[in-house]
Amino acid sequence: MADFQTSTQRAKWILSPQELGGRYNAANQRAIEALEKFGAALMEVDADGSLSYPDPQINSKDHADKHSRPKSLSIEEEQFMRVFYENKLQEVCNNFHFPHKIQATALIYFKRFYLQWSVMQHNPKNVMLTCIYAACKIEENHVSAEELGKGISQDHQIILNYEMIVYQSLEFDLIVYAPYRSVEGYVNDIEELFNENAEMLQMLKVTASLEVDKIMLTDAPLLFPPGQLALAALRRSNEVHGVIDFNSYLDSILSRQNSTHTISELYEGINAIESLVNRYAFPSEKDLKHINRKLKSCWGLGSNDESKKREKKSKHKSKRSSNEMQNRPLQN
């Protein structure tokens, strides 16, 4: 594959924790500004894929009355929303029996998309579906938008409307490196090095792969290169199965890699990834309901007259149905 060393992923999409915090903060701020200016932050995606904010004049009444202005989501609440939909994304991919690689690619697209935008600006459900669709296209496991939409009873037109926005927000950096292949690479290497029996190695690999699934749901893929994510997964898997002396394996890796990595740097990275997995929190149902209600009002889809007005205003079938879905509580 185009070499990771010179990849867009390494150059642009692996951030420091400070950068990551800054990006989330900036996206949140932009949404809040839009909310203040327009009374709603949700961007409208037209059938042609172009974006616009809601017409400020329609909302001028709200604008005048500060108290009725929807309350914005905090950065933590945005995070919870993303967590919820990232899990949904994995669910959808599993239901379609998509391979790991597609799931990982879609997840990374989703994460990168929300480095640029807030969930207040773009409905994560639509973005999630579009990321899956795009990942299938890129990984050559083509599924038609219609088929994907049908599989989860959603209007596929939304996916098509969002597709270009997603590519654009990803800055067309569409080749992503997931840790699954590196896990296999390391397990092959371990096989040669330690002469372990195949059954043990298979277990090591399977569990590590499940660990990667967990890691992929955290911020870790935006913070660490895939090789380190793979090692973190392998270490956890090895703790379960006790196949090898992991520390000496790390030593052996470093001795064979002519890079400036020190063992302590590598430990630091692996520990940090593990702590992200350990600290991973899924929102409670109560939290979710609360955030979801807030989010809808940020989108301008509350139960007040405003939403009806907006709905009437939208002429496209796709838009209308998209709004309908936004009003419907999430199934499954």
Binding site: S182, E184, Y186, P225, A230
Partner: peptide, 12 residues
Amino acid sequence: EWFQESLRLLLG
């Protein structure tokens, strides 16, 4: 080669 690839993916 595969292992080498995994190593390259280690780069921070």
